[in-house]
């Protein structure tokens, strides 16, 4: 695993201290990771999910894209998710919702895995 990817995972462990982070190396220096559990707000049901994504070997140049959450997450108000949140995905053998949010500022500001996941969670809350 490349040192940048390992460092990103260490930072995620500090950001999500109550979660277990499952790491599977991709053979090129990157890794597929699952952070479990992650707690969502009361806007969602159930509130517990997992977060998953591929951190590519070329991180931080490469975006972490897309990000996945548990397929069973629903909006508490009953409204349907719309693109870029799409159903019927899988990640790391888990049925998932796929959240395809790009990072448009990667070339201006160095991105981190922590900020990426937090931005996706923020997007989810505001969706």
């Amino acid at each position: 695993m490349k040192s940048e990817v390992a460092q990103a995972i260490d930072e995620l462990r500090r950001q999500f201290p109550d979660a277990v982070i499952d790491v599977k190396e991709d053979g090129q220096g990157g890794a597929h990771i699952v952070i479990d559990p992650v707690t969502l707000s009361a806007k969602f049901h159930p509130r517990a999910t997992w977060l998953g994504a591929h951190i590519p070997a070329l991180y931080p140049y490469a975006d972490i894209y897309p990000v996945f959450i548990d397929h069973g997450i629903r909006r508490a108000d009953g409204a349907q998710f719309v693109a870029p949140i799409t159903p019927n995905a899988t990640f790391a053998g888990r049925a998932a919702l796929q959240i395809s949010r790009r990072n448009p500022q990667a070339q201006q500001f160095a991105q981190t895995a922590v900020t990426k996941f937090l931005k996706v969670l923020d997007f989810l809350e505001k969706s």
């Binding site: 591929h54 070329l58 140049y61 975006d63 972490i64 894209y65 897309p66 899988t90 070339q107 991105q111």
Partner: peptide
């Protein structure tokens, strides 16, 4: 890089296998 001719999202997509790209549409 600073002329934005290297797309970070495309770098992420290139890192995936063909089956992952298909599955993620």
């Amino acid at each position: 890089w600073c002329n934005q001719l290297i797309d970070p999202t495309q770098l992420a997509i290139e890192s995936k296998t063909d089956s992952e790209r298909m599955a993620q549409a």
